[in-house]
Design a protein around this nucleic acid. Sequence first.
DNA 1: AAGACTTTGTTCGGTTACAGAACAAAGTAC
DNA 2: GTACTTTGTTCTGTAACCGAACAAAGTCTT
Lengths: 420, 420
Amino acid sequence: MPSSKLRGPIEHDTRTNTARSPAPVPDCDPVLRLMWVKGNTYRAAVADALGLSKSVVSETVQSLIRAGLVAEVGLGESSGGRRPVILNFQYGARCVLGVDVGATHVAVALTDLRGRVMEWRELSHPVRTDPVGTRRLILRLCDDCLAEWRGGFERLIGIGIAVPSPVDPAHPDWLSEAVIPDWQGRSDLERLHRRYGVPVFIDNDANLGALAEKSWGGGVDADNFLFVKLGRGIGAGVVIGGEVYRGANGVAGEIGHVPIDPNGQRCTCGLRGCLGTVVGSAALALRVRALLGEYADSALADQALSALAIAQAAAKGDALGIRVVHETAEVLAAGLSGYVHLMNPEMIIIGGGLARAGEALLGPMREAVRRSALVRSVSPVTCIVSQLGRQAVAVGAATLGLLKWLSTVSRTHNPTMTKP
Amino acid sequence: MPSSKLRGPIEHDTRTNTARSPAPVPDCDPVLRLMWVKGNTYRAAVADALGLSKSVVSETVQSLIRAGLVAEVGLGESSGGRRPVILNFQYGARCVLGVDVGATHVAVALTDLRGRVMEWRELSHPVRTDPVGTRRLILRLCDDCLAEWRGGFERLIGIGIAVPSPVDPAHPDWLSEAVIPDWQGRSDLERLHRRYGVPVFIDNDANLGALAEKSWGGGVDADNFLFVKLGRGIGAGVVIGGEVYRGANGVAGEIGHVPIDPNGQRCTCGLRGCLGTVVGSAALALRVRALLGEYADSALADQALSALAIAQAAAKGDALGIRVVHETAEVLAAGLSGYVHLMNPEMIIIGGGLARAGEALLGPMREAVRRSALVRSVSPVTCIVSQLGRQAVAVGAATLGLLKWLSTVSRTHNPTMTKP
DNA sequence: AAGACTTTGTTCGGTTACAGAACAAAGTAC
DNA sequence: GTACTTTGTTCTGTAACCGAACAAAGTCTT
C-alpha cells in the first residue's frame, strides 16, 4: 500500500534538504540501484520498495543475473506464504582502480563494487618534480593491483584519478600549473585509458575524499556536509544534496584562502592571514618549533614535522601536539563559522594527516562550532573524522569510476555489462 | 540535428554547476515550460528545441490552447516553406497573490504568470505586536488586489506568503517565537486557504527574495548565487543549482550571525561581533549618530534613520551616508569571503532598503570581493543590486505559488487547468 | 508560370516501458 | 485437507513517445 502522505492546507516550498538519499545514489536503473545499496533482498521486496510492478522487477533481475551482477543464493523465511528467493548483489563481479596522486606520494586502490579496498599500494615519490617517473609509477602500481586480484584485468570497469589541483571541467586532463609547475599543465594520463581500455575520470583530491565519505564513510546518511582535508595543503570538498558540488567555475572548496586574520602572515595568494597559512602543515611545523622551548620533553622535539606526525603526537597525549592541534581546531572552526551559518550543513568531516589526532582535534572543534551556533537551536553540526582515513581519496577516485559505470548500466541496452 | 558532443578519453565527474537553466525552471511538462519561458514561438521550434517529435508537441499545444494558456495569434515569416502559426503564452490567463509580511509593514502583489506585478498594495503596520490586525489587513489587501483586476477571483491559482522568520519545513504554518513573540508561533494563515480556495505556501522572506531574483531578476542566468537582504534585519537566500537551498535543517542563509569581529558588540544570540550587529539598520543608525558630529551638514542630521533613508542619502551623494555605506560594504564583503571561497558562487545580489544605495554600496563591495579572491583567476563574482527592489519579496512569494501550480499542470490529467 | 523543393503541422501506425490480471508455485493456519 | 498468503512468471493492455506518411502553404529555379 502506498503511504499516502497527508498534507495540510498550508504548504511549504520544499522540504528540508536532509537525508533524502540513504546511500550513494548513482543515476541508474532504480532496481539496480536498490539492489546495489541493499546487497541482498528478494524480488517482491524490491517491487514494493520502488513501487514498481512485479513484472518489471522480474525482468530487470533476470538481466542483472545474466550480467553476473546478481545471483540467487537460496530461499528466505516465509512470512505466511511462499518463501522468497534471496538475491545477492555480486560486489566482486567487477573492480575499479582509484589513483591518489599527492604532492609527495602515489597510492592506488583496487576496489570492488561496494568500494571495499581489495588491493592497496602506496609509495612516497617526488611527484611535483618528476612527472615522467610518476606516470611510470602509477602504471606499475595499477598493474600490481590488477595482477594480484583474480581476474583483475578482465573485470576492470573504470579508473578514477585524484590530483592535488583544481580540475577544469572543460579540460579535465589539464593540471593547474600554479600547483605543480613541472607537469606543465599536462597530466598525460590518457595513457591509462589506452593501456586498460576503460574510461578514466579525473577530479580534485578533496572532492574525491568527499565523494568517498558520502558513499562509504561518515557521510552516508548526510546529504549536505563538508569534507576538509588537512594535510600538506588544505582543501575541502563540498557535498550538497548528496552530490559533490563544484560551484560556478569548478573551484568550490577553496578553503585554503578563507580569511582568518587580516594581520596574519602573507599567503602565496598575496593576501594576509588565509586559513592555509595557519593550518597548513608548514605553518604547523613552524608553530611547533616556536613552542618547542616551552615543551622540552615533547615527542616532537626531533621529528620530521608532518601533519601526520603532529597528529599522532597529539593522539598519544603529547602536550605540545595537543596544544597545536587545539589551536588549529579553534582557527578552523572560526573559519568555517560563516559557511555553517549560510549553508546549514549536517556535518563536517575532517580528513588528511591531521585527522589522525582524533578527539584531540574534534573536541575543541565541536566546542567552538557549538559556541558559534548558539541561536539556531537547529544547528547540531556533527564533527567527525574521516572513516576511510588515508585511503579516502583513492577510494573516492575509484568510486568516481564506479558511479560512472553504474549509470551506464541499463536493463535494455547494455554497454559494459556483458564484458567478462 | 542533435549536437553530438565529442568527449575525449579522459573525463571529468560533472561539468561545472553554472547556468544549466536559462530561466526559472519549474518541474512540469517540458512543452509547457518552454512556451512559458519563451512567451511566443511556434510548434516546429518547440519540437526542435526539446528534441521531441512534432506529434507530441502538436497534441500538447492543443491541450494548452484548450486550457486557455496558449493562443494562436497569426502567422510568422516563412523561412523557405510554409509559414509557422505563432503561439502566444497567455500570461494573463491566471493570477497569483504574493504577500510580504515584514516586521513593520505588509505588502501584497498580484502577479500574472510572468511574475509581472499587476496590482500592488503596501501599508506600514505594527506586525510584530498586532497579529489579529495584521491578519485582517492581509485579507483586505488581497481582496483589494483581486477586486481591482478583471476576473481576479476566478483566475487566482495560488498564494505565497513571505514571513520574516525561519520556516520549519515540517510545520510551515508555525512561526519562530524568537522572532515575533506576540504571534505565539501561530501564523493562522490557513484562513487564506479557506477564503480563496487555492493552495497557500509559506516561506522565509530572504528565500523568496532569492526566488524572485532567480526567476525574474538579476539571477535569471545564474544557478548559484546569494541574495542578501539588508533592511531592518539581515538575511540571505541561497540559490544552488538553480533552486533555493534550505540546508539540513531549513535554516540556511543565517547571514546575520556570521562572525565578523570577536571583540565586537554583543548580539542577541549571545555572541560578539555578528554581522547583524554591524550592518543591521539599528547598528547603521547608531553609527550615523556617532559620526554626525563630523558631518554637520549631512542630510541625515534629522531623519528617521532607516536603512532606506541612509541608502538614499548615500545615493544622493551625502558624505556621511556614503561613508557608512562604504563601511558596510567592507564588512559585508569580509563576512562573505569564506562563503565565496567555499561555494564559488556566480553572483551576490543585494536587496532590502540598503540596496537603494546602488553604486555607493556596490563599488566598495566589488573592490573588497575582488581583493579577497586574487588567486582564483576563475572567481569573477558579480555584485549587483536587486532588480525587483522593494517588490522582490512579495513577487517571490507569488512566484512560489506560481511554480507550484505550473508543476501540477499536466497535458493528460489536468487539475486546476480547467478552472475558469 | 510550372514544377521542384522546403517548411509547418496533423494523423496514423509501431515501439517501449510499465501496470495489472491471471496463473503457477510454495508456503501457513485452522 | 481446505482456505488463505505470499512469491514469482507470463501475458495482455495502456500511455507516451517516435517516425512515416500526408496535407497545407510557402519559396526557388528554369
